[in-house]
Nucleic acid binder design. Structure first.
Lengths: 326, 326
DNA sequence: TTGTAAGCGTTATCAC
DNA sequence: GTGATAACGCTTACAA
């Protein structure tokens, strides 16, 4: 494990000269620099990241904190983050779990992107107070060292409900998401508001937690109490897939006829199932790109505005048009 | 940003006493230790990871290197790795891309798990030569610092082909995977061998690269040349989903009747589509767990045997039983 | 039981 | 242009 000291010895120069040469400092003559570089090559020299970091206080690594690694949910988001950071000379570390959160205060990473509701807000704020730069994707926080890049959940939920109404629906179910998570709460809030604003009172809320299983459980209830055509707004696609599956295989009803379903997130799954799931689309990749842009700006001490990721409706035959039937 | 120096000053002791207290060394009296701990708390002291690493040469971080973050493919694998490592006091960093590969030689991580065919074998070997510990999930390598945990692709492919034959099939397609990737090559090799061993010569290989799109392209070919019932072995589920989709929506044929399909990997998708996709199952989570167990053993300088992850057949109605028709 | 001091591998500020 | 040397924050003999 060669260090600059070894190189210095071999080249017959001092370690500072080696350091300069390695970092392309023009102080050192091209000749000695070349000689040093060659020796470094021979010795398979690799700088010791921790030592450099200790001195420079810049790791050029960014951490993104996720609740877990499950599902295909984050693939494109990560891809977006990674590509942008890579372009800017930063590395991405994907982290999950309590322990890894210490990477930020321990200064292993230059900044963090948080999409993990189990990451306590008090900790986020404390780190920010200590001068660490953070982008939050899952909560609203006002702090000079924190910036937000949030989904426009409210618009999405409104779009979903309005679409169902346009198709003639009047009887609704909402399958909710995990408590105390930003996206789920926002979606639920906007769905209620949109229904109410349109004078609709006939809706039932069923508990969900964004898993397929709770979609199935919700569907059991809906099927058991079925009396008339209804529309189900699942606060994410995964639950919508659960509803879809149960209705299709364990009920006499047909998705897109008696029972309509719409989801949220436009996951790959939603486009595979049949009939195709109506859902709310947004670009995961863009979300990631913008979040990382913001983070690097914050790190560079630029002031940034909070950003919002816009969403759009993807119609699907999982929603019946019953406008004529009313 | 408090350091042990600040704590020492405040507590009126030396930095070594602080260090001892912080690390629970019994040398220091409970009283002073408590006092120091309390001050550390007040000052919101967090150790500087790089400084500690520089001295101890142990980061207690493990890196797993993936080709990309796409798809839901790795979720359970990562979960398995993370959980085991966490139990053992290690942190997991999920990495992708060239730059991050330097984490290993730069000693930021104590070991690596590689599942990324674009990670050059020469680099892997070089790092191993330099004393770094590595587990490979995607190639066969003999080196004291490297251990392998490989899927039993050959058994899986044989199971798939045998299943198709049991169901009476005699006319085959194989949709292949990306060139030069271990899993794809192994699967293809075993499929050919199994067919040949059973005296079957009627099969056609169509190029694929594990994406849905190449499944669709393959399906176009199969449909265009359709003359008699046939069975398609896709070397992964994603392509099988592509075949499935195309046949279902853009051909007069029916999956599980004229055209049978079997995949590999037992992805979530495979169980959502209809008719359910026959496929080859293995536990991603177990793969991850075993890989991380092996890695920690290698790091602890234990010698380990290479491991294999076993697979099993998951029948599905995507495969027709045409035994009676022959 | 506590303090002193060396050292981990770099970078960076000075002299020379 | 090059070389000592201090410093980054921590651990750990060794001394007191």
């Amino acid at each position: 494990m060669a260090s600059i000291k070894d190189i210095a010895k071999r080249a017959g120069v001092s370690i500072s000269t080696v350091s300069y040469a390695l970092n392309g400092n023009s102080k050192v003559t091209k000749e000695t620099a070349d000689r040093i570089l060659k020796i470094a090559e021979e010795l398979q020299y690799v700088p010791h990241a921790a030592a450099r970091l200790l001195k420079t206080k810049k790791s050029y690594m960014i951490g993104i904190f996720l609740k877990d690694f499950s599902g295909s949910f984050y693939g494109d988001l990560l891809q977006g983050v990674k590509e942008y950071l890579s372009l800017q000379g930063y590395d991405l570390l994907v982290c999950s779990g309590q322990r890894s959160r210490r990477l930020l205060p321990e200064k292993m990473i230059d900044g963090a992107i948080v999409l993990d509701e189990s990451f306590p807000t008090t900790d986020v704020l404390q780190y920010a107070d200590q001068g660490h730069k953070i982008i939050v994707l899952d909560r609203e926080l006002q702090h000079p060292n924190i910036s937000q890049v949030l989904l426009d959940n409210q618009a999405g939920a409104a779009l979903a409900i309005e679409y169902l109404m346009e198709q003639g629906h009047q009887h609704f179910y909402i399958v909710t998401g995990p408590k105390h998570t930003y996206d789920a709460e926002q979606r639920l809030h906007a769905a209620r508001k949109t229904l109410t604003r349109n004078g609709i009172t006939d809706w039932v809320e069923l508990d969900g937690d964004f898993t397929k299983q709770t979609g199935i459980t919700a569907a059991e209830h809906i099927v058991a109490h079925y009396t008339k055509p209804c529309a189900v707004f699942c606060l994410n696609d995964e639950m919508a897939a659960g509803v879809h599956h149960y209705v299709k295989h364990s009920s006499p009803y047909i998705i897109g006829e008696q029972i309509s379903v719409i989801g949220f997130d436009h996951t790959e799954l939603s486009q595979f199932i049949e009939p195709a799931l109506a859902t709310i689309y947004y670009s995961m990749r863009k979300w990631g790109t913008i979040a990382s842009q913001q983070l690097l700006k914050v790190i560079g001490n630029e002031t940034v505005e909070n950003e919002r990721i816009y969403v759009s409706l993807v119609p699907g035959s999982s929603v019946a048009n019953i406008a004529d039937h009313t």
